[in-house]
Simulated scan of single mutants.
Amino acid sequence: MLSYSDSPSGTDPRARDLHRPGVLLLAGAAIAILLSGCAPESTDLTEVGGDYITGTGTITEIPRAERGAPIAFSGELDTGGTASSDDWLGSVVVVNFWYAACPPCRAEAPDLESLNQQFLPDGVVFIGVDVRDQAATAGAFSDTFGITYPSILDAGAGEVQLAFAGQIAPNAVPTTIVLDREGRVASRIIGQIPDRSVLETLIEDVIGEEG
């Protein structure tokens, strides 16, 4: 059984790696895209650019008793209006940091939407955080890949990224974070989701926690 080691700087030292039987961790490196290497914004989703750095993907779970404080965040949505983490307290929340010209973000988009649909009956909330684009580009991405959940537009002040930085430092895109019902970081995947079943299991673990 393969596992991913947790080594990025600035991350929570209490976190432990995920290497539990029944979770398939595929061989090979996931692609981590540093924010400094973002491509120029474009609504043409057939063109991809930027300086991409290949790194080892990291999957981490934080034991319930060792999680940090709830993370509060909010922002304008690509679909119009605003959203706030206060709206989702009591629900499991999956937060995906992405941008349109990021190849791994494009590759994992179908899995994210599939899991969004799967967990709708359980009340799980999926929310994207677009770290690079304006509404038109984000909307074009959603239309191309059939994404039905909204994204917060965080390209300006980066307030959502700052809200998470003290606990999980999402300095690579994509990064996917599962928040528990109290709004605390329960698990994360840095880099492209290596397999749909990995995120599925992380979500199921938090759903199964007793209140």
Rank of each mutant, 00 (worst) to 15 (best):
144 T>G: 03
113 E>R: 15
120 L>E: 03
127 I>N: 00
149 Y>G: 02
116 N>I: 02
134 Q>P: 01
154 D>Y: 12
136 A>V: 04
140 A>H: 07
124 V>K: 13
111 D>T: 09
156 G>L: 10
153 L>R: 07
120 L>M: 08
130 D>Y: 12
164 F>L: 13
165 A>V: 14
123 G>N: 06
110 P>K: 15
128 G>A: 10
113 E>L: 09
140 A>W: 02
116 N>H: 14
135 A>N: 09
138 A>S: 13
125 V>N: 04
112 L>T: 10
158 G>H: 15
166 G>Y: 10
117 Q>N: 12
122 D>F: 08
162 L>T: 15
124 V>H: 10
133 D>I: 08
116 N>S: 14
149 Y>V: 02
139 G>Q: 12
122 D>E: 10
159 E>F: 07
108 E>A: 13
155 A>L: 03
168 I>P: 00
119 F>V: 12
123 G>R: 08
126 F>A: 01
136 A>G: 02
154 D>A: 09
124 V>T: 08
151 S>G: 06
129 V>P: 01
114 S>T: 13
155 A>G: 06
133 D>T: 02
130 D>A: 11
119 F>D: 02
141 F>Q: 03
132 R>S: 07
129 V>S: 00
110 P>W: 14
136 A>Y: 01
158 G>F: 14
149 Y>H: 05
169 A>R: 02
166 G>R: 10
148 T>P: 00
147 I>T: 13
112 L>K: 11
124 V>M: 06
143 D>L: 09
124 V>N: 04
149 Y>R: 02
166 G>H: 07
140 A>F: 01
130 D>N: 14
132 R>Y: 04
155 A>Q: 07
110 P>T: 15
126 F>M: 04
169 A>L: 12
138 A>M: 01
122 D>A: 13
152 I>T: 03
169 A>S: 15
144 T>A: 12
142 S>A: 12
129 V>Y: 02
126 F>P: 00
125 V>S: 03
122 D>S: 11
